[in-house]
């Protein structure tokens, strides 16, 4: 009798794996295949006009952070690459913080509306998602350019007497990225806040907690998983952003994504592009690990 039950269970397990197999195989090929090609390419020699030559070389990896001066052949850190990495990390962190700053009150506002209204508010957050990323970015360009809406309005009001140069600066990249990635912060925050038991907030007030104390001691710890999820969802794509810095940065405020594209285009150095891509992947994984550890260490505290 026990044997029969075990056999049935085994069969069920086997069926489950068989049914899952097609999806798993596709996932394995689609996820690791391109990554493997990228890894192999990063150890090859660049072709004269793009592409790769099948000759082993570690030059690409060397060139990620180091470079040989073309004039006096001295070895030094690759100033260009390092400053682009630094800019990418800095802008992504700032984007994450600003998204949190704007996203948190937004999500809180929505979560505290009557149940019927919430769907409408969420719809308003999601609608921009239905629009192409490029179009949303160009809409921001229209706002911040010299003859754009903001400058025209400020000039008309007499606040300024010459347009402020906002487009093609780090500021405009930041505005663009915050606008584009904000929904990715609001959605998980809202999901966490919707589950929040507001009787706990009331209890805190009953116990004479100030508004700030309620926020810090009750709400924030309870929605922390949402904060972490939202931050990851914003930080990771920000780091690899391509379109927004391309359009808002005017081609001389590169981020990692643009630097990688440059290697596959005008730079004609595919191995370097591949090595940079894997470096980007490494930075993202490092960031994720830090997040996971930060989130994990707080766990007992909550319990």
């Amino acid at each position: 009798m026990a044997d029969l039950a075990q056999a049935t269970q085994q069969r069920a397990a086997r069926t489950r794996w068989l049914l899952l197999a097609p999806a798993l195989v596709i996932l394995l090929i689609a996820a690791s295949g391109p990554l493997l090609i990228t890894l192999v390419y990063s150890f090859l020699t660049p072709g004269d006009y793009g592409g790769v030559e099948w000759q082993f070389s570690v030059d690409a990896w060397f060139n990620v952070v180091m470079q040989r001066d073309i004039f006096d052949d001295t070895l030094g850190f690759s100033d260009a690459h390092l400053s682009i990495f630094a800019r990418s990390v800095k802008l992504s962190l700032m984007t994450t913080v600003l998204c949190l700053f704007f996203g948190f009150p937004t999500a809180y506002f929505i979560a505290t509306r009557p149940k019927k209204q919430r769907d409408l508010w969420m719809l308003l957050i999601i609608i921009p998602f239905w629009t192409n990323l490029l179009i949303r970015t160009f809409a921001v360009v229209e706002l911040v350019r010299n003859e754009g809406t903001v400058n025209t309005l400020l000039l008309w009001l007499g606040v300024i007497d010459a347009p402020i140069q906002m487009l093609y600066t780090e500021f405009s990249i930041l505005v663009g990225m915050v606008y584009v990635y904000l929904p990715l912060m609001v959605l998980p925050l809202y999901a966490a806040m919707e589950r929040l038991d507001f009787s706990l907030v009331e209890a805190a007030y009953d116990l004479y907690a100030t508004r700030f104390q309620v926020l810090r001691r009750v709400i924030v710890p309870l929605v922390k998983p949402g904060v972490v999820a939202g931050s990851i969802l914003v930080f990771v794509p920000s780091l690899g952003a391509y379109v927004t810095p391309r359009v808002m940065g005017g081609g001389n405020q590169l981020m990692i994504g643009n630097l990688i594209e440059l290697q596959f285009g005008q730079g004609r150095n595919w191995p370097l592009g591949a090595a940079l891509s894997i470096t980007l992947l490494g930075i993202v994984m490092l960031a994720l690990l830090l997040y996971v550890r930060a989130a994990g260490s707080e766990e007992p505290h909550r319990g």
Binding site: I70, D79, A80, I84, N252, L262, Q266, G267, R268
Partner: peptide
């Protein structure tokens, strides 16, 4: 072209 690319990348950073 190789020399130009090096100068160019430095310029675009």
């Amino acid at each position: 072209t190789k020399l130009y690319t090096a100068i160019w990348t430095e310029l675009q950073k």
